[in-house]
Design a protein around this nucleic acid. Structure first.
Length: 728
DNA sequence: GCATCGGATTTTTTT
DNA sequence: AATCCGATGC
């Protein structure tokens, strides 16, 4: 086990073999942060003979957790069992299930995701008879989430004006309703865990004793609630080992507070601090560029990153005429590099600020017929049919879940409309039951309930019986049996496969979900539902296909690629329009770019577009991202004569002379431009506008856009496939 | 109760 | 552009 340390540099060794007690590892990007953490765990187990079950390791994503588990496994060589390793939320979930007796919900509680939260809040707002425009459910939830992350209880919600008063009222009601649903939201998982640790010394003692060692990754992205939990757990043994980098703090909007690093140093005065500054990832040029960007942020402990790596290639800069060209250039550059330089497709990553930006890239990839991996965005778990089925199963697991019940009670339509549902809700409230229990009671033949519901009773009872039979089924059978039963009983396939081609897609999603369920045969319904709630799809990415990866800058944290493209380096996108007014937000945008740049090992390409299609409306001129100005010109290549100071005062006249980097040269045409059906000068006939003359026609988004001048209507832009233009 | 149509409306990042 | 909501008509 002593040779464990042989593979590490002196700084890393020092970190891995640090004496017990509170320890803070400040690690720059690419300095082997994850490595240190995994080796530390292996060191504790292997060298110090700490039993694995006495260790708790917390990561930021499920994916990181899995990676770490794998690596520890490999280091130790034998099966590590009993080690608690997971995200804050999954760890809290585990504790809360065990200690459910102490909670206002029972052990079968479900976790409400963002959609469930919104559905519930909408209902509450509607019931309040207050203006839904003034009290937007999403902004209420936002305020509530912020409060929870700061461990503010509803009763203590700071009230400064009338609106706050209302928000507080909603906060209180929202919590009550969650309890009624036997549910909690993401933030509650932290809040409840903190509360039971705080309120019950026995619990604190139990877990404090159990977790002799606590290790935390991405510590800069913890929020106050998470920090409080850590502090309580570590109170006893004080072996809190945290790893972080304030320069990579990018989740402020979610309540993360990098000042937890300072809190840690204050609360644990004897904490050792270890700096990891040697970068093993990037070339010197990339590193220089990254540092140039981040050095502009104040309030940071300056780290001097260094590397033994070569200077490497300069940072490439691509300026496209518009966003579509930007996507094409990126894709063709990748295509070239793969075909001419024989680089592996999997070594490429394209990053962007917002998920919406992936669309044009996807189209560009499809145009050249290349496959790609898309992280996040089109969330599999966000698809309607997937959510439907999960709602069914959640209802089976927890009949008190009213949000799910409302979702599925009339799905597919079975004659139970809004009115009937409200009737059930009222009856349930009167009887002091949940709606689900009411239906189950009805199915059991309770005559009072039957009478109260009158005409609709039979249909409702039928649903109740179905629910009851599913519950029986779930008790005795694996999940997939339940899954199939539900599909069968409600005729779900027929429902989604009605007529369209889209139906086939949907059915495939259903089958895909079934495959996921299959993996939980052993662990059961609870584990399945919990993972559905806590596991984002970016964790479930198949890593098997060798293709370029597209992902947001946020999702890129913790990853690395040989070839990185960062697109959309324009104001409004990066920094994002919503972050431009607040200095702290702006600093975070800068860190975001820093994170992106430091993902690159060998080659970094930054791109922007002169014009961009705005959320709605036509093209708009863009302004170059202000952070570009901070990268010294000598680190850049691409359009040299334009580089110094050009970004802020773009004097380009729509024409740029590039010194194209060699690896980008000889781009094959992406495809021969398909011919447009309509030509300038053609006479056409339109149903509404009548006769007109084609002025221009171009291909866009795989479709033809025709500009036609109509007598009396002027110039109109029409989509050829929709407009039913007749050529005369 | 249900389906369809038209109008309005939009959050950036995610456990 | 895409989705969601409400109103309308069946």
């Amino acid at each position: 086990m002593s040779d464990l340390l042989d593979f590490l540099n002196p700084q890393q060794q020092q970190a891995v073999a640090a004496a017990l007690g509170p320890t803070l590892v400040l690690a720059g990007p690419g300095s082997g942060k994850t490595r240190v953490l995994t080796y530390r765990i292996a060191y504790l187990i292997g060298a110090l003979n700490v039993p694995a079950y006495r260790i708790l390791a917390v990561t930021f994503t499920n994916k990181a957790a899995r990676q770490m588990e794998d690596r520890v496994q490999k280091l130790i060589g034998e099966q590590v069992s009993g080690l608690w390793l997971g995200t804050f939320h999954s760890v809290c979930g585990r504790i809360l299930r065990r200690e459910a007796d102490l909670l206002p919900v029972n052990q079968n509680f479900v976790i409400f995701d963002a959609n469930d939260q919104l559905a519930l809040m909408k209902e509450i707002v509607r019931e309040s008879n207050l203006d839904e425009k003034l009290y937007r459910p999403s902004s209420l939830l936002d305020a509530i989430s912020r409060a929870k992350n700061d461990l503010i209880e509803p009763e203590n919600y700071p009230v400064r004006n009338f609106r706050d008063e209302q928000v507080q009222r909603f906060f209180i009601q929202y919590q009550q309703r969650l309890v009624k649903n036997n549910a909690m939201d993401f933030d509650d998982m932290l809040v409840y865990t903190n509360r039971i640790l705080e309120d019950y010394p026995v619990v604190r003692e139990t877990y404090g004793h159990k977790f002799e060692h606590i290790l935390v990754d991405e510590f800069q992205d913890t929020n106050l609630a998470q920090y409080a939990i850590l502090r309580l757990l570590a109170q006893k043994n004080r072996n809190l080992y945290v790893v972080g980098d304030e320069d990579q703090s990018i989740y402020r909007w979610r309540g993360a507070d990098y000042r937890n690093i300072l809190r840690f140093q204050q609360d644990f005065k004897d904490a050792k601090t270890i700096l990891l500054e040697q970068n093993y990832r990037s070339t010197q040029n990339i590193l220089d560029g990254a540092m140039a960007v981040i050095d502009h942020n104040r309030n940071r402990t300056a780290k001097k990153l260094f590397t033994d790596a070569k200077r490497g290639e300069k940072i490439n800069l691509i300026i496209a005429q518009d966003d579509r060209e930007e996507a094409d250039l990126v894709v063709s550059a990748i295509h070239n590099a793969i075909t001419h330089q024989k680089l592996s497709p999997g070594s490429f990553a394209i990053m962007y600020r917002t998920n919406a930006q992936s669309r044009l890239l996807e189209e560009a990839f499809r145009r050249v017929g290349m496959s790609y991996r898309l992280v996040g965005a089109q969330r599999f778990y966000g698809r309607r049919e997937v959510k439907d089925l999960i709602a069914f199963m959640r209802l089976v697991y927890n009949p008190m879940d009213e949000v799910s019940l409302r979702r599925v009670i009339n799905l597919p339509p079975r004659g139970i409309g809004d009115k009937t549902v409200e009737k059930v809700a009222n009856l349930a409230a009167r009887e002091n039951l949940s709606m689900g229990e009411t239906l189950l009671g009805l199915a059991a033949g309770n005559p009072d309930l039957h009478e109260a519901l009158g005409r609709e009773a039979s249909r409702l009872a039928a649903f109740g019986r179905m629910l009851r039979s599913w519950r029986d089924c779930a008790e005795k059978n694996p999940i997939t049996v339940l899954f199939d039963r539900i599909l069968e009983d409600v005729g779900y396939q027929a429902h989604i496969q009605d007529q369209s081609e889209e139906g086939l897609d949907r059915w495939e999603n259903v089958l895909e979900l079934r495959m996921v369920a299959l993996e939980y045969e052993e662990q059961g319904l609870q584990a399945f539902l919990e993972s559905m709630a806590l596991v984002a799809d970016q964790d479930t990415l198949p890593e098997t296909i060798d293709a370029p990866t597209m992902l947001t800058l946020h999702a890129a944290k913790g990853l690395e690629f040989d070839q990185v493209f960062i697109t959309g380096l324009d104001e409004m996108l990066l920094p994002h329009s919503r972050s431009r007014d607040d200095e702290e937000d702006l600093a975070e945008e800068r860190r975001l770019l820093y994170v992106g740049i430091t993902r690159a090992r060998k080659r970094l390409t930054l791109t922007r577009a002169r014009r961009r299609r705005s959320p709605y409306g036509s093209y708009e001129e863009t302004i170059p991202c202000r952070f570009l100005d901070d990268i010294p010109a000598e680190l850049l290549q691409g359009s040299p004569q334009d580089i110094p100071g050009r970004f802020s005062y773009g004097r380009d006249s729509g024409y740029s002379r590039w010194e194209t980097p060699s690896w980008m040269r000889s781009a094959p045409p992406l495809r021969e431009a398909p011919k447009t059906r309509y030509k300038p000068g053609m006479q056409v006939q339109h149903a509404t506008y009548g006769r007109g003359v084609v002025k221009a026609s171009k291909l866009e988004h795989g479709d033809e856009t025709v500009e036609v001048y109509f007598e009396g209507f002027g110039l109109k832009a029409l989509v050829a496939s929709l407009a039913k233009l007749e050529i005369l």
